[in-house]
Design a protein around this nucleic acid. Structure first.
Lengths: 203, 203
DNA sequence: GAGTTATTAAACCGATCTGTTCATTTTACT
DNA sequence: AGTAAAATGAACAGATCGGTTTAATAACTC
């Protein structure tokens, strides 16, 4: 009984909310879906919102752990360094997109359904984004890129854009498209490369 | 009475759904919010879903019209060509992000709340993405870029990623960050520029 | 094995959900 | 001004919402 009943409840709720949406998932349906009585759920959590916050906390931890670990594993495979790890982010995303249960970014959906900025659920989603940005920035700095803050934000934009494209456009190539774009960006900001072309006018 | 009551209803509903979410907006609240009796609403639309589909249709039309028009106006201001229009997309997005009522992408939220792929609401969102992609591709081709389909998808990823970043991270610089990235991409694929650096390995 | 603790199903609560009904008032046209 | 159409508020229906209660059962602890 190592995964406590509570953890199991959060884990299964995570799946249901992700597939079904937050408002669209009633507590009766959730209870039936995860195979646990409503009484028990409310014995662990005071309200549905409390449960959702906890679900987002778990997803934050799981997603960041998984992605960073996958970036490291894929990126260091062929004696790669920080640059390869950064690019491996999009390979990891590709794996995610091709999972049967891929259904977009839970945090984005959370901010969409709970749009008040100071709502606990909304804030939890923001917190995830901030924490991942910090971790990614550290890696970008290790890659010795110019303007690391800018590059970090751009890599995040490519990541979130790819997720959106995969969700609404069902574009199979989204992760690869983003990866090529990231290569272009990283090359441009690589201090070990010749002078960058950052001009604005083509004509 | 030029804007028919029906159009007015859709327009105001668009605002409420955008600010409040779909499931979270009950028909009684919607009725009160837009100042029209529930009886009248249901006289124009058979179901809430029908109304939402119509709302998305309107938003599709309005958003594509606004963005493409704004790209043209901003992009051709200083004798700019297709390239400047493409880049102006992110300036237009910047204006949008700084509106008081900016609340993320309605289509993305729609797919999040109605995740079944064949749901009319979900399909309507997908249709929007497809139509805008077609229009953007036409402009990319006018800009004489190599691999126009790829570049189009990448520019879309940057656009959607910027929207996500502006929504969940509240990152003020999202549009500018995306624009710099787009410049980098476009320069790389510009046929009138020297050979592109598309190598994958830095070490 | 007794006693505490956790979990269960099911009924229940008031509020809210989507959608309807209906009698009344407002609007629009000639 | 007179008539037909449109819009209204308010009550209503049945289902579901988030959440509670209760009494019985299962599981762990000493």
């Amino acid at each position: 009984m190592r995964p406590s009943k509570r953890e199991e409840l959060i884990e299964k709720s995570l799946f249901v909310f992700d597939q079904n949406g937050f408002h669209a998932t009633g507590m009766d349906l959730l209870s039936a879906e995860i195979g646990m009585s409503k009484t028990s759920i409310y014995n662990h959590f005071r309200t549905k919102e409390d449960l959702i916050v906890e679900v987002l906390r778990l997803q934050d931890e799981q997603f960041r752990n998984w992605l960073l670990r996958r970036m490291y594993d894929l990126g260091t495979a062929n004696h790669g360094g920080p640059r390869e790890q950064l690019l491996a982010m999009y390979d990891a995303l590709d794996e995610w997109f091709n999972h049967d249960n891929f259904n977009g970014c839970l945090f984005l959906k959370a901010t969409g359904e709970y749009s008040e900025h100071d709502h606990p659920i909304h804030r939890q989603a923001i917190e995830h984004a901030e924490m991942f940005e910090i971790q990614l920035l550290a890696l970008v700095k290790k890659a010795s890129l110019r303007l690391p803050e800018l590059v970090t934000r751009q890599l995040l934009i490519l990541k979130d854009g790819a997720i959106s494209a995969a969700q609404v456009g069902h574009i199979k190539s989204a992760a690869k498209d983003a990866k090529y774009a990231a290569q272009c960006l990283i090359d441009t900001h690589d201090t070990s490369k010749r002078k960058p072309v950052q001009t604005s006018f083509a004509f």
